[in-house]
Amino acid sequence: MTTTNPATMSAERFALETRNMHIYYSAFRAVKDVSFGVERNKITALIGPSGCGKSTVLRSFNRMNDLVPGARVEGDVLFRGQNLYAPDVDAVQVRRRIGMVFQKPNPFPKSIYDNIAFGPKINGWKGNKGEMDELVERSLRGASLWDDVKDKLQQSGLSLSGGQQQRLCIARALAVEPEIILMDEPCSALDPISTLRIEELMFELRQHYTIVIVTHNMQQAARASDYTAFFLMDADRAGQLVEYDHTEQIFQNPKDSRTEQYISGRFG
């Protein structure tokens, strides 16, 4: 331990790591002193009651918070040993490597094909039409949507059902070849069957990607994640990481009494 650079050490194990991260919206501190590491090729769930800062933490991982006027992050968020908030890092580059899927399915009002092709095109894709076709197919297969839409690639993305739209959004994120996929309550607008399909998809994606998911649904966290981080706001209404462990551990044998109360449904 003493001879190796700890940053390199953890970079091998963790896809993402936060160290003493504080997040502010103007003068308000929304998240206080969060330190944890997201394991590679695992699904990490962030849970906690409303307003506990779990979405804020998720959005800090690909600098989506930069879009909120007045938001800023203190401390380190390390990705491959590099602080994402270092002055020389461009948020645009970060988002290419760390993709995001949102709460409400938000396909562009374009064809299914163009929805997938949008990301590669804006990121300076070099290749011919055939290669783009391949990329579109690969992305749609990756999101297990190909069989549903292969005959109607030119139809609008908005013509799909809610669950299909969300898988289209996942496929769209895959098309820019990210390493990490952040999901912000991806199933909260979906019916149970569509939810199940997304969860199955997450297990498939885990082989190649690291997934961080925010969820309100306790059962979803329990069945569809490897690690769980429980957040809670403190007396100043700032979100804090209470407990972070293997999902089984969190749900069966939590160390903190607040975690136990929350997962057993006594508040939140």
Binding site: M64, V92, G99, F102, F118, A173
Partner: peptide
């Protein structure tokens, strides 16, 4: 123009101008 479309565009690594030109303006 729904903010969710802007977010989708940024989330894919679009710059602000690309988001405005390719997503906001056409919509």
């Amino acid at each position: 123009v729904p903010n969710s479309l802007r977010q989708a565009s940024y989330g894919l690594g679009a710059t602000r101008w690309q988001t405005i030109w390719k997503v906001v303006l056409p919509n």
